Computed example of a mutant assay.
Amino acid sequence: MSRLPDIDPVFGDAASADAIELVVVPRSVDIGGFAVKRALPTIKRRMVGPFIFLDQMGPGEFPAGEGLDVRPHPHIGLATVTYLFDGEIIHRDSTGVEQAIQPGDVNWMTAGRGIAHSERSSQEFRRRANDRRIGGLQTWVALPKDQEEVAPVFHHHGRAQLPVITGDGVDLRLIVGSAYGETSPVKTFSDTIYADVLLQPGGRLPIDADHEERALYIFEGEIEIAGDVFEAGRLLVLRPGDRISLTARAPTRLMLVGGAPMDGPRHIWWNFVSSSKERIEQAKNDWKSGRFDKVFGDESEFIPLPEGP
Rank of each mutant, 00 (worst) to 15 (best):
R3F: 10
P5D: 10
A15D: 15
I20H: 06
V23E: 13
V24D: 04
V24R: 13
S28M: 11
G32R: 06
L40Q: 03
K44I: 01
V48P: 07
G49P: 08
F51M: 13
I52Y: 03
I52L: 14
M57R: 01
G58T: 09
P59H: 08
G65N: 11
L68N: 02
H73E: 04
P74S: 06
I76K: 08
G77L: 11
A79N: 10
L84N: 08
D93T: 07
T95Q: 12
V97A: 13
Q102P: 00
D105P: 03
V106Q: 07
N107C: 03
W108S: 09
G112M: 12
R113K: 15
A116Q: 10
A116V: 12
A116D: 03
R126V: 02
G136A: 09
Q138Y: 03
W140N: 01
W140L: 00
A142V: 07
A142R: 05
P144D: 01
Q147L: 10
Q147Y: 02
E148C: 03
V150Y: 04
A151V: 09
P152S: 11
F154K: 05
H155G: 00
H156M: 03
H156G: 04
R159I: 04
R159V: 09
L162M: 10
V164W: 04
D168K: 14
G169C: 06
D171P: 00
V176W: 03
G177A: 06
S178V: 01
G181A: 08
V186Q: 09
V186P: 05
S190D: 07
D191R: 12
T192F: 08
L198S: 14
L199V: 02
Q200G: 01
P201F: 11
R204S: 05
P206R: 09
I207E: 01
F219Q: 08
E220R: 13
E222P: 00
I223T: 05
I223E: 09
A226E: 11
A226H: 01
F230I: 01
A232Q: 14
R234Y: 00
L236K: 07
V237R: 15
V237L: 10
V237F: 06
R239F: 01
R239E: 15
G241E: 08
D242M: 12
S245T: 14
A250C: 02
R253W: 10
V257S: 08
G258K: 06
G259T: 04
G264R: 02
H267S: 09
W270D: 07
S276L: 08
S276H: 12
E281W: 02
Q282E: 15
Q282A: 14
Q282G: 02
D293G: 15
K294T: 11
K294P: 00
P304I: 07
P306L: 07
